Simulated assay, not measured.
Amino acid sequence: MSLSLYSAAEFRKRAIAQTQTITADSWRDTGDAKLNPATIPHVEEMKLKDAAVLVAAIDEGEDARLIFTQRTATLRKHSGQIAFPGGAVDDEDHDVEAAAAREAEEEIGLDRRLVEPVGRLPDYMALSGFRITPVLAVVRPGFSLNLNPTEVADVFEVPLSFLMDPANHEMGSGVWLGSERHYYRMPYEGRNIWGITAGIVRVIYERLYA
């Protein structure tokens, strides 16, 4: 039987295939960078800190679900926003996959032994000062979560089929450093997925499903 287009097995296959095509310049041609080419020279001049986020697809049923968090309102950066679990890469992390899995375990209690990294996306160069590597992973179902209340206010799941439908990718704009900047947003059941997180989701669509 052929795999469902949005199953975790198909996500794994596509993640592996596209990871092999990533170059040092791939970030320029996808997602928010493609929407805002004028920001590229600015971000290239910045000294960026390395970070990683875990894009975790739950391996259950024919429509995998991605795990999202809502950050607490008290955090210094991106407070209250929807995000993938993740954070800064520490010296003891042997690679970005380890960093993403560690951060997910610290933030939401996701057992890293259940996390299977299957690929990466091009780095996301954030104007907030981070070089973010999205780590694509498949997660075995049946896990339990324990949220870190200082970082995470809530956690929820969104079907991959919803996120990979470009009809659900709305456009917004705002002013950054005196210039208009465009961004994606994907409202889902009263939650507003936007900014960096929606930009990463858009890159998943562009590189795996478009």
Results as ranks from 00 to 15, higher is better:
Asp29Gln: 01
Trp176Phe: 13
Ile108Val: 09
Ala52Gln: 05
Gly174Lys: 06
Ala167Tyr: 02
Asp91His: 11
Ala100Gly: 15
Val175Cys: 05
Trp27Lys: 15
Asp111Cys: 09
His94Ala: 12
Gly195Met: 09
Arg14Asp: 00
Ser173Thr: 11
Ala88Tyr: 10
Leu66Ala: 01
Asp91Asn: 09
Ala15Ser: 13
Ala17Trp: 10
Lys34Leu: 06
Thr69Ala: 12
Gly142Ser: 15
Ala100Asp: 12
Ser79Asn: 04
Gly61Tyr: 07
Ala56His: 08
Arg120Asp: 06
Ala9Pro: 01
Glu116Trp: 12
Leu66Thr: 02
Thr19Leu: 01
Phe156Arg: 15
Asp93Gln: 08
Gly195Glu: 09
Pro166Met: 00
Lys34Pro: 06
Ala15Val: 09
Pro41Asn: 13
Glu180Val: 08
Arg113Gly: 01
Leu5Trp: 11
Leu127Glu: 10
Ser128His: 04
Pro122Leu: 10
Ala153Val: 04
Glu44Gly: 11
Ser144Tyr: 01
Gln18His: 04
Ala83Asn: 15
Trp194Pro: 05
Glu60Ala: 10
Ala17Ile: 02
Met125Glu: 12
Ala126Gly: 08
Ile16Asn: 15
Ser7Lys: 14
Lys13Val: 03
Ala17Phe: 11
Ile22Met: 12
Glu116Thr: 13
Ala198Cys: 08
Leu75Ala: 10
Arg202Thr: 00
Asp93His: 11
Ile58Thr: 14
Leu35Gln: 08
Arg181Asn: 12
His78Ala: 00
Asn146Trp: 11
Leu35Met: 13
Arg65Cys: 11
Asp95Cys: 08
Val89Ile: 05
Ala100Asn: 15
Leu208Arg: 00
His169Ala: 09
Phe143Cys: 05
His169Cys: 02
Ala210Glu: 08
Glu105Lys: 13
